[in-house]
């Protein structure tokens, strides 16, 4: 029994230690003024992290907007309120689905790739050799990836929202015959730029920091073997999905739930 409690205690200590390491890691790599060279590295990573995730995010956004519109219509039409379709699609996308689903897709597409890439660089001693050349890998390898993630995900989220609203329009207006004017005007009457779009973007910023941080840290901190890499990529997806969903609840409670 005492053994078990002790084991639990050790788990707790390990966990705290990992959090500490991750915090120091973030602080060391995310700060520092970008140089010209750093800017170039950042653009490179923006390409890998952002541009290459664009397709999956946009396609998913289109489908989610279409489904939302279809489901919403069947419910709203019972109340004769199908005019409110635009409002429903836009609010649920902007407040909830765009930040969350884009973050989950981002964790799967870009996060796991980041972990694997950095993990492979660690396993093949590229990070150590960089250190021996006298270049800080936190600055050279980690920082551009972190910042690329921080910037990409909010942009992807905006794209997701736009495409989703368009998808809702396609299904609702073109297919189900909701009056086009009421689709847009109801939306415009109910969506507030600061409260809805702004809060959605704040959410996605938070998710961007968390997901990229987890991904990059898992890559940097893994056991440098092929098994270690595969485990770390799994951990990245699991941890960041959980973190996104959990944080989403907290943020929603604060932003829209009247807390604080």
């Amino acid at each position: 029994m005492i053994q078990r409690i002790r084991r639990l205690g050790r788990r707790g200590c390990d966990l705290l230690e990992a959090f500490g390491r991750a915090g120091i890691f973030l602080a060391q790599s995310a700060v520092g003024l970008p140089s010209r060279e750093g800017l170039y590295l950042w653009v490179r990573q923006m390409h890998f992290v952002g541009v290459l995730s664009l397709a999956i995010v946009l396609v998913s956004g289109l489908f989610i907007g279409m489904v939302l519109s279809l489901q919403g219509y069947t419910i709203l039409v019972d109340f004769g309120a199908e005019d409110a379709l635009g409002q429903m699609v836009a609010l649920s996308l902007l407040r909830e689905l765009a930040p969350v689903v884009a973050a989950l897709l981002f964790a799967g597409r870009a996060g796991s790739a980041l972990t694997a890439e950095i993990g492979l660089m660690k396993a093949t001693e590229q990070l150590t050799s960089m250190e021996m050349i006298g270049v800080d890998p936190l600055r050279r390898v980690v920082a551009p990836r972190l910042w690329a993630g921080f910037v990409s995900l909010p942009l992807l989220t905006v794209g997701f929202g736009v495409v989703g609203i368009y998808g809702g329009y396609l299904v609702g207006v073109d297919w189900l015959g909701v009056f086009e004017g009421s689709y847009w005007s109801n939306m415009q009457a109910s969506v507030d730029f600061i409260d809805d779009v702004g809060n959605g973007i704040i959410k996605s910023l938070v998710f961007a920091v968390v997901v990229t941080w987890i991904a990059v840290f898992q890559g940097y901190d893994l056991v440098p073997t092929s098994e270690g890499i595969s485990r770390a990529t799994t951990r990245t997806v699991v941890y960041s999905s959980l973190a996104v969903l959990g944080l989403d609840f907290v943020l929603t409670a604060v932003m829209f739930g009247g807390l604080a």
């Binding site: 660089m121 093949t124 001693e125 590229q126 150590t128 050799s129 250190e131 021996m132 050349i133 006298g134």
Partner: peptide
Amino acid sequence: RQRMGMLFQSGALF
């Protein structure tokens, strides 16, 4: 470290 070079087992090329 700029005054040291190190050759790694795997080469460790970028």
